[in-house]
Every structure is written in C-alpha cells, then in structure tokens.
C-alpha cells in the first residue's frame, strides 16, 4: 500500500516514472481481402503514459483505425502484443474482455452511437448497470455526469431530440460512467461543426486534466493538436513520428500555414 502511494506520488512529481497505461509491442495486423493479404500494421511499438491526452493522426488507410481498435481491445493483433494497464489483451477470455471494455475503457464514437430508444440518462447509466452498480446509485451518478457535461436538465431527452454536440456530450458522460482509465475517442469531432467540435475538445481536455484520465483520440482534426500532450503520426502501417507537447507548437504553426 505504502509502496503504491509513494509510486503515485513519484508519478505526480516526475513524468519519467509515470505508468504506462497502454503498451503496444511489435504489433502487426493482416487483413484478408479476398485472396490478397493486406498488412494494415507493419510492426508498431508504442507506449502511452497514464493521464495524458494523446492524438493519433494519419490519413485514412494508414492503419490508424486498426491501431486504435487494437488499443481499445476491440481487435486482436496478428502478431505482437498489446498491453492495457499491463494486461495482455490477447490472453483475455470473452468475460474478461467485456469487463475490460466496461470498466477500464470509455468509448466515444464519431457517430455518437447513443442507443436510440433510451433517454440520455439511461444511455449514461447502461454501462454502470453492466458494471454491477445498483439502479439508484447508477441514476445518481448518471445525473452527476450529465451535470458535468452540461446536460443535467435534458436527462429525459431521447438522442433524436438532441443536437449533434449534445449527443456527443451524452456520449462523453457515458464514456466516464465507470471511471475508466482510458477514454478512446474515434474522430469525436468528425460529425460536428467547428464550434461544437471545439467545445467537445475542450470538454475532453478538461476531463483528462481534472480526472487524470488518459484520452486517446484518432483524428484528422487539426484543432485537436492544440490540446494534445503527444501526437502520434501514422503512415502506411508504421509510426512516422511522435511529437511531444514541447515540439508541437512549432509543427502546429507549420501545419497552420500549410492549411
């Protein structure tokens, strides 16, 4: 216990000993398309530290989504290993994988993917119910989370009664339901206009800051770069470069010029 506490303390003091929440080692992934094998990932090594805001950038077809699904425990590598919180996801059975998805990871999707027949509150409480929380407690926490994302007064609305930005906020609240260690956001601003997109980015950034949640997002969105602690550029199934926050201001400048 003491040991853990001191570890946590050290982690806060120096980033160098921070915990690796995601570790990807020598991962390849091959898809069969008819008779042709397509290698989407050609040996990726990657460490993501806990509590950071990481963006994965890359053109479509670069293997970005494949890597992203791998990190999210949605897909298994053809070779190599993916560790989430030091657990090899290839070793998990269906139950453990479901538990991991439920408790450790929160997902945010480009298309929001709220369950259409449920109200905002029910959408947020669903993962808590899967996680074994009682109904009352889940409702309390669900309301608290909806308040946090600024939708406390719209808890009874169905997804189709909410705007895109509001739906994405509900999705953020849902992702936070079980206090996950990682939030995976797949193009979270892809279906939103400029302003709402910025709001969602700010919300995610705040959450990662306040709750010490690791946010990993796959994106094309240049706005994301400003808030990222680390940007991973993927090209042609390999990591092209990894930029830390310090280097980033420069590259954002140049990116800005290019666009």
């Amino acid at each position: 216990m003491l040991n853990e506490q001191s570890k946590a303390l050290k982690g806060e003091l120096t980033e160098a000993v921070e915990r690796k929440i995601v570790r990807v080692s020598q991962v390849t992934k091959t898809f069969k398309l008819g008779k042709v094998d397509v290698q989407a990932l050609k040996g990726v090594d990657l460490d993501i530290l806990a509590g950071r805001y990481v963006s994965i950038m890359g053109p479509s077809g670069s293997g970005k989504s494949t890597l992203f699904n791998m990190i999210g425990g949605l897909d298994k590598p053809s070779s190599g290993k993916v560790f989430i919180d030091e657990v090899d996801i290839a070793q998990l059975d269906a139950y453990e994988l479901a538990w991991l998805r439920c408790r450790k990871i929160g997902y945010i999707f480009q298309t929001f993917n709220l369950i259409q027949v449920m109200t905002a509150l029910e959408n947020v409480t669903l993962p808590m119910i899967f996680g074994g929380m009682g109904n009352e407690a889940a409702i309390d926490k669900g309301m608290e989370l909806l308040d946090l994302v600024g939708l406390g007064d719209r808890y009874q609305h169905k997804p189709f009664e909410l705007s895109g930005g509001q739906q994405q906020r509900v999705a953020v609240a849902r992702a936070l339901a079980n206090n996950p260690a990682i939030i995976l956001a797949d193009e979270p601003t892809g279906n939103l206009d400029l302003n709402t997109g910025e709001e969602i980015i700010a919300l995610l950034k705040n959450l990662s800051w306040e709750r010490k949640v690791t946010v990993i997002s796959a994106t094309h969105d240049i706005k994301m770069l400003n808030v990222s602690d680390q940007v991973i550029w993927i090209r042609d199934g390999r990591i092209e470069k990894i930029e830390e926050r310090e280097d980033l201001t420069i590259s954002v400048g140049s990116v800005g010029e290019r666009w």
Binding site: G72, L74, A94, Y95, A98, W99, R101, C102, R103, Y107, F109, T111, N113, L114, I115, Q116, L126, P127, F130, G131, R174
Partner: peptide, 16 residues
C-alpha cells in the same frame, strides 16, 4: 448492428 456493437463496446456479453 450499430446498437449491438455499441452495447458490446460498453461491456455487454454475447448472452445479454
């Protein structure tokens, strides 16, 4: 399809 996939991402088991 999408709803089922979402539920599975939230941790639903096959039997749910």
């Amino acid at each position: 399809f999408r709803e089922i996939g979402t539920m599975k991402c939230l941790g639903a088991l096959d039997r749910f």
